[in-house]
Write a protein that binds this DNA or RNA. Sequence first.
DNA 1: TTCGATTTGTTCGTATGTATT
DNA 2: TAATACATACGAACAAATCGA
Lengths: 256, 256
Amino acid sequence: MRRAPAGAHPPANPLYKEVKNRLMRGLVAGEWKPGQAIPSEWRLAGRYGVSVGTLRRAVDELVAEKIVQRRQGSGTFVTTHTEDHQLYYFFHIVSTGGGKEAPTHELLSFRRDRAKGEAASQLKLERGEPVYRIHNVLKLADRPVIFDEITLPVARFPDLTKSLLAARAGTIYGLYQARYGINVIRISERLSAARASSRQAAGLQLREGEPALIIKRVAYTYHDTPVEYRVSCVNTAQHEYLSDLWKGAPAGAAEP
Amino acid sequence: MRRAPAGAHPPANPLYKEVKNRLMRGLVAGEWKPGQAIPSEWRLAGRYGVSVGTLRRAVDELVAEKIVQRRQGSGTFVTTHTEDHQLYYFFHIVSTGGGKEAPTHELLSFRRDRAKGEAASQLKLERGEPVYRIHNVLKLADRPVIFDEITLPVARFPDLTKSLLAARAGTIYGLYQARYGINVIRISERLSAARASSRQAAGLQLREGEPALIIKRVAYTYHDTPVEYRVSCVNTAQHEYLSDLWKGAPAGAAEP
DNA sequence: TTCGATTTGTTCGTATGTATT
DNA sequence: TAATACATACGAACAAATCGA
């Protein structure tokens, strides 16, 4: 029982994809916020007029994309970036030994600037649009390991201040989420090796010109909308970037 | 309040996990080889005495892990590394522009050696066990970009020769699979920045001491068994390592 | 502490649609 | 065209976990 008589419509998505999209729209609209539970499967199935099995299939995909999490006996919850489990989700620097250490942050500078160059193009901003430019050092085991330059569009993060950033409880993505309702669900990173610039070297207490790992990251929220551009410089004398690959070639998104 | 009166049994896996494991054992045993179709869902369900739905759920997980692929109307096939689609599956070097270029290979050297150091420990070999040591250069757009040192246990690749390697049709993983029945399904990479060694610099036509991206890779087959250790040195002047993250924190495997 | 309501997890079954050969 | 195989959708029943009364 295909529903529409197909007036030359889109490829006639399966029903569960349709349901998934409707759920996504609810998430984007903020109908259910991170940390909160969405309605029960029974209730959602009724709301969308589908069987529980079909509803489950839609939620299955959101779970696979880590957009929501299921807890048996409790409910299905919108993913948060403040939980321990998520803390390391986008954090791939490990000590050469292999152990993950608790990081500490040091906010070096915070100022307003104008978008330009790669930051502008990756964030899909016009040249000259206002952005924040943030410099931050991350330490592991008390040694500076990562020097970050973060670019954020002012439009998406109104009234962000240095003290808000410095006083945040969890990760910076937790702050995006808690204060601005922006949920980072995907990042794309491009890595290369280069000599550390004087600024990067200073932040990492490294000799200028020493080889360092450069990571250019774009963070995306729903619908592949870029929200953060970040250039990280990593001292890989004692640490490495860990990449485990075995599944999930960029599938799933960008269909509708 | 574990349910079992503790017959010391495992946590009593769900049925579909059990079925998945049985399928895995069949794959490992070579009952169905890469490129071949496994029996139909209907048939497998009968064989394992479960419903088609349960059988499908087991296969779903194998599909998610890219161990098999479904083709509607045709069947379910064991994943191959020779298909175009899989060609770039474990290949993450892209030109700075973004496009992926067709690579060409040049086999520099091939010799037998004894395992030692990190290669031995990562491959879970005793020091001194026989290995092959292979040096290879990969070119993109006619320029040398990646210098590889590959270590393989002789025990798993008996009678491998230089000409076999040089004459291979597709990727090196395709050769592992076609000739030795070894199916690489997962790799783990650790990246750092360092000065290129003289050997690496020579292979890449680079000045010695220039910063380069170092990738230490371990390739695994079923049951997390390591089969290849590889140190790659990448000239990132014109190319970058691309890492897209958004799902699938190492879940799925390693259960029993 | 126990109990019961709620919610997700697992398993079964059936019917029908769609792609391949 | 017909047979086969996977894809989608529905429904039902019970198990297991959670949480509050």
